[in-house]
Nucleic acid binder design. Structure first.
Lengths: 118, 118
DNA sequence: GCACATAGTGTCGAAAAGGATACTATTATG
DNA sequence: CATAATAGTATCCTTTTCGACACTATGTGC
């Protein structure tokens, strides 16, 4: 049984869509971006960087990213626990995608995201 | 009242996240990609290109993309009706983003999207 | 007169995603 | 003994998303 159902595809040949599925999830892109910029980060460091994300969601998203092979989770058998997250090679290969998103946003979302924004 | 609630942001300064919000929606990226490749397309042409998408969803996604200024909807007052969709200037500016997604997918998703895929 | 094509809309319900909150184990520190 | 820190879990609930399906108007072709 798949850990997470793959959603139905609009057109199976669309690698655009498949890629988007990987980074779909409310916080995944931000996590990847933070790791891209920050290198290795611990769980609570990520939390502090994204205060709006609940612990549960952060764990969820990290686990999915790990399952997709986009990041590496390294547990140190210490007390208090220490877990370090960093991009895997595959994750780092997403740099162009992430940066394309960032660049577009910087250029096009300076003031408002929607025309009718108050 | 906003047409669609903007979801809470992980970090307001992240243009990465904001950009992703614009193209978030199950079929938006594919629609944009089809229009990028196909130029101007009519409603039912899009439907045929994406058979898995219901009429209602296609309409929804097209309306949201229009509201975000990413595409142009041109209605011809004819019977039977004719409506043509094409990327706006703003929409076309997303080309780098869309192509980054496609290129990554082509290079990294050749066989399977998930390690545990049967 | 009937079906067909276009570009939709309306309603209902299921499923998935996400949020709030409380709880865990262990050790160090005071 | 009490508190704090780490990296989470567990449970419950609400919101959002998505799909199925039926329905619309109008003119053309048979």
């Amino acid at each position: 049984m798949p850990r997470k159902a793959l959603r139905q595809t609009a057109c199976p040949t669309c690698s655009v869509e498949a890629t988007l599925n990987l980074i779909d999830g409310k916080w995944k892109i931000v996590i990847l971006y933070k790791l891209l910029k920050g290198g290795t980060l611990r769980f609570n460091e990520l939390r502090r960087l994204m205060p709006a994300v609940t612990q549960r969601m952060l764990t969820n998203q990290l686990r999915e990213l790990e399952a997709d092979g986009l990041l590496t989770r390294k547990v140190y058998p210490e007390v208090p626990p220490r877990v370090e997250y960093s991009l895997s090679v595959r994750g780092r290969s997403l740099e162009q995608v992430i940066m394309a998103l960032k660049i577009w946003g910087d250029e096009n979302l300076v003031t408002a995201t929607r025309a009718e924004a108050a």
